[in-house]
Design a protein around this nucleic acid. Structure first.
Lengths: 237, 237
DNA sequence: CGACGCTTTGAGGAGATTCAAGACACGTGG
DNA sequence: CCACGTGTCTTGAATCTCCTCAAAGCGTCG
């Protein structure tokens, strides 16, 4: 692994800059080292390519190292809904845990790289599984909490949903070391609308309305937050 | 525990009639016995009483033995939404797992009883925690899957949501040994509407519309499914 | 048996969708 | 480097679904 052609030095869990966000968070130093042995790195996908497909057997938990992805669910009529967007440092794959078969499809929104913690080791005792299981359980529950939060958001008026969406993306990017106030959306209006339960025209209208109100500046997918308080005010009244 | 005043013999995990639905499902006989030692039984709540409250510290996973409950989430503005309804044999409490603090409130819809697997033992090694952790992980993931399913449902037209709701309750009751075609709803129209993202008047209208179409028979909360195919047809076109 | 809460039913209105068309951005090839 | 084409984004107008408000009917429980 150390003789790659990249200019970077080999990345392990021990020196990964996402370690505080990713699964190792909370593990002992030695355990992180052990975990590092079990992880497959340097997986790459390009825009539109699939990370895993609905119905495929669960192969493990995935940690996004760079780039972004969307998690979509498809019902029996072929309706596709965006369950979540995944940013660097975030985990992916919990939809395959319960039934050992993925219930969703994960698709790259841009070029991305990810690490892969093989399912084989999730129930083996290669490392202190008690702690790892605990961590996984927490992450899985966290996914549940997020869905509940999203459910609450979907009940709110369209403008609140969009305001909240912008602010949440901002927060998540900030937590990962990116600018909180100026960033590029990697998903289309259509995908945002699908995620928020709105038509893409509605999303577009509201985003431009926010711009007219001096809350944000938008140019296509480039977004700049001008007045965070006003945005917050939309759903904290 | 065996010297209770009830007429039933003492219930343990080993002789509980919900064993195939509850957590022990898949455990070894001896492990079920061990698990039984850790469970607090005979907890009772009456209609409207709280099982656990949002913000309270996580004390463990709960298995509903009889009766039904609702799981509600409350946002910063005091808006209350019904996240889920819980039927006998179903598990509860996963909203407290990630942050060790409950994110939701669980409330009895009628008189109910439940078992309580103390959180203290979830990370101790009193029994084969590898297996139990695995089981818990699967249940937690299952909760996530359910929320994704619900998310998809909420995108559908109101009539589909109600049809799906009726059929899902029917299936869940059937799996627990109750009649699949005739049952009593333990929740109000208001609560159904809240759960499905509809006004209670809309729920009422649609239920009565279904009755006019000879799909169901309704008398207040008593419900009888007359034509399951027609109901299915509403969202499987 | 009376009161309260839940359910039903109707009318009107608001918010978001759908349909349609034009503007813009981006990647491709000349 | 620019022209072109495709897909994305914007904007407008008409429509529709579902909500809100209002009031009456029913059921349930003290």
């Amino acid at each position: 692994m150390s003789n790659t052609l990249t200019t970077k030095t080999a990345v392990t869990c021990e020196n990964c800059n996402l370690d505080t966000l990713c699964l190792p968070n909370g593990l002992q130093r030695t355990e992180i080292g052990a975990l590092g042995q079990l992880v497959k790195r340097d997986n790459i996908r390009r825009k539109g390519e699939i990370i895993y497909h609905v119905g495929s057997s669960f192969r493990g938990i995935i940690a996004l190292r760079s780039g972004s992805a969307k998690l979509v669910s498809i019902d029996s009529n072929g309706n596709e809904i965006v369950v979540n967007f995944i940013l660097p440092g975030e985990l992916l794959g919990f939809d395959g845990l319960a039934l050992q078969t993925h219930q969703c499809t994960a698709i790259a929104l841009e070029t991305l790289s990810f690490c892969h913690l093989s399912a084989h080791y999730l129930d083996s005792s290669a490392i202190d599984t008690a702690f790892l299981n605990q961590a996984l359980l927490q992450r899985a529950s966290d996914q549940f909490d997020s869905q509940v939060q999203k459910m609450m958001l979907i009940r709110r008026p369209a403008e609140e949903r969009v305001a909240s969406f912008i602010l949440k993306i901002s927060e998540r990017l900030k937590a990962r070391g990116y600018s909180a106030l100026e960033f590029r959306l990697t998903m289309s209006r259509e995908e945002i609308g699908n995620y928020l339960g709105l038509a893409h025209e509605t999303v577009s209208r509201i985003i431009n309305h926010f711009q007219a109100l001096q809350m944000i500046e938008v140019k296509s997918r480039q977004l700049k937050i001008i007045n965070k308080k006003k945005l917050l005010g939309f759903y904290e009244e």
